[in-house]
Amino acid sequence: MSLKIIVLAKQVPDTRNVGPDAMTPEGTVNRAALPAVFNPEDLNALEQALRLKDANPGSTITMLTMGLPKAAEVLKEGIYRGADEGILISDRPLGGADTLATSYTLAQAIKKVGDYDIILCGRQAIDGDTAQVGPQVAEKLGLTQITYTEEIISLDKEAKKIVARRHIDGGVETVEGPLPIVVTVNGSAAPCRVRNVKRVWANKNREFTTWGAADIEADPAQIGKAGSPTNVKAVKSIVFKAKENKTLTSSDADVESLIVELMESNTIG
């Protein structure tokens, strides 16, 4: 039976490789030094969606992303790997959103898409590591959720049931939930398949529909900065307080003297 699958994806600065040039001399983040990438766990989510599509011929995957116009790059990447549709949600009043305003915006867009059996997204995005948007979208849509998912084991559209294995603290759990549902996918899930060359050729010049705040009938009080309860009061870059220290070389004499010093003070041994 064919499924209607929605995948939420985010374009993020690659904070995994923060180098010495990641900060400007003024102490602000140098975004230009950080390449924009497909949020890694959203790729794990896309793979779970593609597996559902493989197992249920005729299924369609619609990707949604919210961000600057450049964020459409992740939609194209998703199409190259097997997604069917992509919609960019981009509008000036949507800027400055915290996780709550973001999840409201995404939930409004999902309502506009309308027909869906399952919504998949990464557990969290690497630019904030909050893991909040998935559960908040679920709450806004009145759906339950399976977070930290490692594998969707089965999905039965007729019985409206999904079984998934998820990571929990210190172990794993297998749960059964109803459809429709929001599933957030963990980085320990299967990695995403690579681009399909034919799809790359066929979609190189693909353009994507853009929805603004009015298109998704967003309440202006719930989007962007106005819809965000959290405020960043202060940001500071870190200056380590240097403490007095002893610098040694890697010579045998230096290493042995350190070991002896630590052993004599009963610090080790």
Partner: peptide, 20 residues
């Protein structure tokens, strides 16, 4: 895992801010 599953839902339902 539990706090990060529950916290966002509670904050969404009450429209309150949550910092992870």
């Amino acid at each position: 895992v539990i706090g990060r599953d529950l916290g966002p839902r509670v904050s969404s339902a009450l429209h309150s801010g949550l910092t992870a």
